[in-house]
């Protein structure tokens, strides 16, 4: 089967400084992959490059293909048709990722209307409104009707992230990219959002690229992990294998840190 996302030897440089060096990564339809590394390791950069949204001034070389179409060097027009169609992205900070001046219902309606038109479905006012309610219910938000009229600053962090997930779901993408989606949330909310993401990905048969610096978090939602450090992939493999037999020093330190953290939790409990 053709991979949804195929990255081969991707390098990114800014002002002559190399930020990403020969990163390769492939995700099959329906597959869930975790991308792990500390901040600055280049994991978010990889995701942005995949959807062609690198900041100006950054140059990417290598090959990226989304559903078989080249991304590097592609025109903005062809990228627009890939984004929201093949992929949808949930970002780290839901407060700034949402437009502060629009009710959340309207923000969900925007990608939804686009998708309905794309699929040739009815996209009248009532169809879109019903779709928005449905999406809000899917992300388990209470009282969707009242909630859709509220502004982002009136919601809690967890609610905002659910809205952001609903916006991504509205696209019905083949691949959902989640860039540190739980980092800005407290621990309880983190667990809820993780469960929700895992459920939605399974229900909709989407592939998932889950980016995090947090090993235990990633392990709960993905089948395979790719570990990055300083812009280079240092290790990749199925979750269980990487956890039980980490090959690289950096991975070993991550696993050890995660274990001692868990141990501390269990000891306290």
């Amino acid at each position: 089967m053709r991979p949804v996302l195929d990255i081969a030897d991707l390098s990114i440089a800014a002002n002559g400084k190399t930020l990403l060096d020969k990163v390769s990564l492939s995700i099959a339809p329906g597959e869930r992959v975790g991308l792990i590394g500390e901040s600055g390791s280049g994991k978010s950069l990889t995701a942005l490059a995949a959807i062609g949204l690198l900041a100006p001034g950054l140059t990417a070389t290598g090959a990226i293909s989304l559903d078989g179409q080249d991304v590097i060097g592609a025109s903005e027009r062809s990228m627009v048709s890939l984004r929201g169609n093949v992929t949808a992205t949930v970002f780290q900070e839901p407060l700034t990722a949402l437009d502060p001046l629009q009710p959340v219902g309207r923000q969900i309606a925007e990608p939804l209307r686009r998708r309905l038109r794309r699929d040739g479905e009815a996209a009248g006012r009532t169809d879109v409104a019903a779709g928005v309610q449905n999406l809000l219910a899917q992300v388990a938000l209470p009282d969707p009707l009242a909630l859709s009229r509220r502004y982002p600053h009136e919601l809690s962090g967890g609610q905002r992230q659910r809205v952001a997930i609903a916006m991504a779901l509205a696209c019905r993408p083949q691949l959902l990219i989640a860039d540190e989606p739980t980092t800005a949330l407290d621990v309880t909310t983190q667990a809820e959002i993780l469960r929700l993401l895992a459920k939605l990905v399974a229900d909709n048969g989407m592939a998932l690229l889950f980016i995090s610096h947090d090993l235990p978090v990633v392990a709960r939602v993905v089948d395979r992990v790719v570990v990055m450090q300083h812009g280079v992939v240092v290790e990749a493999g199925p979750v269980g294998e990487v956890f039980s037999r980490p090959q690289h020093d950096y991975t070993r330190s991550l696993v050890a840190a995660a274990r001692s953290f868990d141990g501390a939790l269990e000891g306290a409990a």
Partner: peptide, 12 residues
């Protein structure tokens, strides 16, 4: 703390 990876080292 929004994606520190994005801060591009600027030379002027």
């Amino acid at each position: 703390m929004t994606t520190p990876e994005l801060t591009i080292p600027q030379t002027h």
